[in-house]
Design a protein around this nucleic acid. Structure first.
Length: 809
DNA sequence: GTTGCCAAGTTTTTT
DNA sequence: ACTTGGCAAC
C-alpha cells in the first residue's frame, strides 16, 4: 500500500491514491463515491470497466476486506475480463499479487448457483442438485406434455419453455401462473409448467431461470439467509446493469438491503448504458435503470460521456446510427481525439468473397500495422463480429486457408456435442443418482439391452413408489414385466455406476481416485469410447472417418483433469466463514464429489471453452452479443444485410428493430482504430444461395465518415429489392435505400442487358432449384427475363436479376 | 430390441 | 445443412 494512502474508510478525498490518477473528473467521482447507491450511466468506451476495477482496488486500498466485495456481471466473458482487470490493477497498485481471496466477481447465474448450493436446505433443494441445460429442459417438457396427453403441435415444447422462462424471469412461479391463467391454452400451459416443475423437483434439478427465481425467493423469504449475505457483502457492484431482468433486479435489491435493514443507505454501485441493452429477449428490463433511483433513495447519478476508445470517424458512425433510435434518451458521444481512418463499408459478392476480403484486410495490418506505422498489429487485436453463429463458417475457412490463427468464441458448442453431453450425463448421474433425465440419456447409450419397453416398466415402478429411476433399476428383479435380459442389463448398469461412486458414498477402494480417473473410467467402462471408435471405423470404410467424436471425449477428460488441477476448495468464495476469517479450512483434500460437483457446475454455467493462444494471439470471431464489453484495434462486422442484421426474427416491432440497431452500435463501438463493415450480395443460408439486400443500418450510418466500395460483381446482379422492398414496404423509419440505389434504374437496365447478353437462346443453364434447362427466349433491360425449358419441369419465366442462372456446357 | 432410412423441423442472440 | 424423431425392417 502506498505510504501516503489514508486508511480511514470515511475519508472521501484520498488525494494521494494512485488509483485516482489518470482519470477524468467524472471517472474519479465514480471511483471514489463509495457510500450509498451510485448509478453510473456510462457511454460505450467511456472507461466503465476502468472505473469499476479502480473502485474495487480503491476499496481494498482503504482496507475493506476483499470478501466484503461482490461484483456481478451478466456474462461469463465480462466476469472473466473484469477479474483479469482487477488483478492487473491490484498488482500495478502494489495492493495484491493476484485476485484477493474471497473477492467475488462472477455472473448472476453462477452466484445464484453457489448460494443455492450453500443454502440448499433453506432453498428446499438437495445439495447435489443438477443444472439442466436447454436440451434437458426440452426432454423433460416433452415428457410432461406427453404425460398430460397434450399434443406437441398445440404446445410446441420450445415455445412452452420460452413461456415458462419468461414467467420465471418475472418471478412468476407455476402456482402464480396457474392463478392468473385465463384462457384454455394458458390453463394447459399452467399444467405443463406445474408438471415440468414437479419433474425437476423429482430429479433434484433446476434450470437456468430457477437459479435466479429460487435465489430471489430464498433471499426474500429467509431473513436469516438475507441477513447473512447482507452482513458479508457490504460493497455491491453490478455491471451491464441495463441487461438485468426482473429477477436479477430483485436479487440485487435484496442483497443490497434497505436502509432499515442496514441502518444506512446500501452501498450498491451499478453501471449501465441503455444504448447497449441487447438482452430484452431474455427478459432484460430497461426500467431497472429508471427504477434504480426509486428503489434506492439518495442515489448519486454519474454520467460518463467521453469516449476514450475509438477514433472520431468510428464514433461518428456509431453516433449517427444510434440517433435513429426514437426510444432513447439523447446522449452525445464525443471524443477529444483527432484524425483516424474512415470507416470502410464494402459490398461483396458472396460470403466467400466477403471472408477473403476481411482476411486480406487483417493480413495487411498483420504485416504493415495500422495506418502504415510499420509496427505489425497482433492477431489478437483483430476481431470479426456477426449476428448469428452460422456466419462464422466462411471466415473460418478463409482464415484456415490463409494460416491465420483464430479462435471462435462459440459459447457452448463443445459441451453440446452429442458424445460430450452423453459423457457428462454419466458424470452427472454419478454426482446425483436421482437425475432421471441424465439417467435416461445414458442408460442405453451405448446399447445394453435396456429398451424402451423395459425402461417404461422401470419408470412406472419408480413413480408408483416415488423412487428415483436409478433405484428402480437397482431392483430390476422386482419389476414384473422386465425380461431377464433387460434385468441383467439394468443390474450391470447399476453395478457399473456404483463402482465409480462407491454406491454414491464416494468411499471405498474401487471408487475413482480423481476426477480425471472418473472421467476416464466413465468413457471407457461405459463403452462410450469403444462405441464411437467403432462408429468411426465403420464410416472409414466408406469415405471419411469421423474420429472427432473420440477426440472430443478425450478432450473432455483433459478438460476435467485441467479443472481438477486448478481446483482448490478453499478458493470457493462462497465458503463464508473461511473467506471471512482467512482460514483455509479443509484445503488440500478436495473430495471427489466436491470436485465433481464444481466441475459439473462450471461446465453448465461457464460453457465457453477458453482455448488459445499463440505468441501474438489469434483473430477472434464472435457474435455481436459476445462482443459486448470488449475492444479491438481493428474490427470487421460482416453480414450487414436485411434479415441478418437486423435479423428477420426481430423485424416485427419497432422496439425489436431498435434493439438490433443497438446491437450494431455495440459492434461498431468495439473498434478502436479501424472498422470495416461488409454486406454480401448473395448469402448461402441453409444450403441455398440467396439474394440479399444491404442492411438499412448501412444507410443509417451516413456518409460523412464512410468510404463505400461496391465490389460485388455487377454480373451477379445489382442493388435489387428481392425479398426486401416487397416484404418491408418503406422500411420502418428511415425511408428507402437512397445512397445505395440512386443510380439504380440506370444501373439495373445496364446490368439487365449485360445479364441477357451472356445468355443467348439455346444456352444450357443451371438453376439452383429447377436444375438444368435450355433457354428459349431472352429479353434485356431493367427487368431482363428469360424463358427456360427445364428438364422434367417445363417452361419457366425467370427474372434474370434474381434467378442466378449459370451457363453449363 | 436394434438398426437404418426418411421426413420434419430447425436457427438469433446467453446463462 | 444438419440434426432429431418416427417408423419399418431385421
Amino acid at each position: 500500500m502506498p505510504a501516503d494512502a489514508p486508511t480511514t474508510p470515511t475519508d472521501e478525498t484520498n488525494p494521494g491514491s494512485r488509483l485516482l490518477e489518470g482519470l477524468t473528473e467524472q471517472q474519479r467521482l465514480a471511483t471514489r463515491t463509495l457510500e450509498g447507491p451510485v448509478l453510473v450511466l456510462a457511454a460505450a468506451g467511456s472507461g466503465k470497466t476502468r472505473v469499476t476495477t479502480r473502485r474495487i482496488a480503491y476499496l481494498i486500498e482503504r482496507g475493506e476486506p476483499a470478501w466484503s466485495i461482490l461484483a456481478v456481471t451478466f456474462t461469463n466473458k465480462a466476469a472473466r475480463e473484469m477479474r483479469e482487470r482487477i488483478e492487473r490493477t491490484l498488482i500495478e497498485a502494489g495492493l495484491a499479487s493476484g485476485t484477493p481471496r474471497g473477492l467475488i466477481c462472477t455472473t448472476f447465474h453462477s452466484l445464484c448457483a453457489r448460494l443455492l448450493r450453500r443454502y440448499a436446505d433453506a432453498a428446499g433443494l438437495p445439495a447435489d442438485y443438477s443444472i439442466y441445460d436447454t436440451a434437458d429442459q426440452l426432454t423433460l417438457v416433452k415428457r410432461v406434455i406427453a404425460g398430460l396427453e397434450l399434443s406437441t403441435t398445440n404446445f410446441p415444447p420450445r415455445s412452452v419453455l420460452s413461456s415458462i422462462s419468461n414467467a420465471k424471469n418475472e418471478l412468476i412461479d407455476a402456482e402464480a401462473f396457474e392463478r392468473q391463467a385465463g384462457d384454455f391454452s394458458t390453463r394447459h400451459l399452467a399444467r405443463i409448467y406445474k408438471g415440468y416443475e414437479a419433474g425437476k423437483r423429482q430429479a433434484g434439478a433446476v434450470d437456468f431461470d430457477d437459479l435466479l427465481l429460487l435465489t430471489a425467493r430464498l433471499l426474500g423469504e429467509d431473513a436469516t439467509v438475507r441477513r447473512e449475505c447482507q452482513d458479508r457483502w457490504r460493497w455491491l457492484l453490478i455491471d451491464e446493469y441495463q441487461d438485468t431482468n426482473r429477477a436479477q433486479f430483485v436479487i440485487a435489491s435484496l442483497l443490497a438491503g434497505t436502509r432499515e435493514e442496514r441502518g444506512r443507505d446500501p452501498n450498491i454501485f451499478v453501471v449501465g448504458d441503455p444504448d447497449q441493452a441487447i438482452y430484452s429477449w431474455r427478459g432484460a428490463d430497461i426500467t431497472n435503470i429508471l427504477e434504480f433511483e426509486e428503489r434506492f433513495a439518495n442515489a448519486t447519478v454519474i454520467p460518463l460521456g467521453e469516449n476514450f476508445r475509438s477514433t472520431a470517424p468510428i464514433l461518428g458512425v456509431a453516433d449517427t446510427l444510434i440517433r435513429q433510435n426514437r426510444q432513447r434518451k439523447h446522449k452525445d458521444l464525443f471524443t477529444s481525439t483527432q484524425g483516424g481512418s474512415r470507416v470502410e463499408v464494402t459490398l461483396c459478392r458472396d460470403e466467400g468473397h466477403e471472408a477473403s476480403l476481411v482476411v486480406d484486410w487483417f493480413k495487411r495490418f498483420g504485416e504493415e500495422g495500422l495506418d502504415g506505422e510499420g509496427r505489425p498489429l497482433a492477431w489478437r487485436d483483430m476481431a470479426v463480429f456477426y449476428r448469428t453463429n452460422a456466419l462464422s463458417r466462411a471466415v473460418e475457412d478463409e482464415l484456415r486457408r490463409s494460416g491465420v490463427p483464430y479462435v471462435v468464441v462459440r459459447g457452448t458448442a463443445f459441451y453440446q456435442r452429442e458424445e460430450v453431453k452423453t459423457a457428462l450425463a454419466y458424470l452427472r448421474l454419478a454426482a446425483n443418482q436421482s437425475d432421471d433425465v441424465s439417467l435416461t440419456r445414458v442408460v442405453n447409450t451405448p446399447t445394453r439391452g435396456i429398451g424402451k419397453a423395459s425402461l417404461a416398466a422401470a419408470q412406472q415402478f419408480a413413480s408408483e413408489r416415488g423412487l428415483p429411476l436409478f433405484e428402480a433399476l437397482r431392483r430390476a428383479e422386482e419389476i414384473p414385466s422386465v425380461s431377464a435380459r433387460a434385468a441383467n442389463g439394468m443390474r450391470a448398469f447399476v453395478a457399473m455406476v456404483d463402482s465409480w461412486t462407491g454406491a454414491g458414498t464416494f468411499m471405498g477402494t474401487d471408487v475413482a481416485a480423481s476426477l480425471r480417473d472418473l472421467a476416464e473410467r466413465v468413457i471407457e467402462e461405459s463403452g462410450l469410447e469403444a462405441h464411437y471408435r467403432k462408429l468411426a471405423a465403420k464410416q472409414a470404410e466408406g469415405e471419411e472417418a469421423d474420429a472427432s467424436r473420440v477426440e472430443n471425449l478425450e478432450e473432455l477428460v483433459s478438460s476435467a483433469a485441467a479443472f481438477e488441477e486448478d481446483y482448490d476448495p478453499a478458493d470457493d468464495p462462497m465458503r463464508f466463514d473461511e473467506a471471512m476469517t482467512g482460514d483455509a479450512g479443509t484445503a488440500g483434500v478436495p473430495d471427489l464429489l466436491g470436485v465433481l460437483r464444481a466441475y459439473l457446475e462450471s461446465v453448465s454455467l461457464v460453457a465457453d471453452a477458453d482455448l488459445e493462444s499463440s505468441e501474438d494471439g489469434a483473430v477472434t470471431l464472435m457474435t455481436l452479443h459476445a462482443a459486448k464489453g470488449l475492444e479491438f484495434a481493428a474490427a470487421a462486422i460482416i453480414g450487414l444485410e436485411e434479415g441478418q442484421l437486423p435479423h428477420s426474427r426481430a423485424h416485427t416491432s419497432e422496439a425489436d428493430l431498435e434493439e438490433e440497431r443497438r446491437l450494431c452500435f455495440v459492434g461498431i463501438t468495439r473498434a478502436m482504430r479501424r472498422l470495416h463493415m461488409t454486406a454480401s450480395r448473395y448469402r448461402t443460408v441453409r444450403g441455398v444461395s440467396e439474394r440479399t439486400i444491404p442492411s438499412r443500418f448501412l444507410e443509417e450510418i451516413g456518409t460523412e465518415h464512410v468510404t463505400l466500395s461496391d465490389q460485388s460483381d455487377p454480373f451477379a446482379g445489382i442493388e435489387g429489392t428481392g425479398m426486401g422492398a416487397a416484404s418491408s414496404p418503406r422500411r420502418l423509419g428511415t425511408g428507402g435505400p437512397r445512397e445505395l440505389s440512386s443510380a439504380d434504374e440506370v444501373e439495373r437496365a445496364a446490368a439487365g442487358d449485360k445479364l441477357a447478353a451472356g445468355l443467348a437462346a439455346g444456352t444450357t443453364v443451371r438453376h439452383p432449384r429447377f436444375g438444368i434447362g435450355v433457354i428459349e427466349t431472352v429479353s434485356g433491360g431493367a427487368n431482363a427475363r428469360a424463358q427456360v425449358n427445364f428438364r422434367g419441369i417445363g417452361l419457366k419465366t425467370l427474372v434474370l436479376e434474381y434467378a442466378r442462372l449459370e451457363p453449363v456446357d
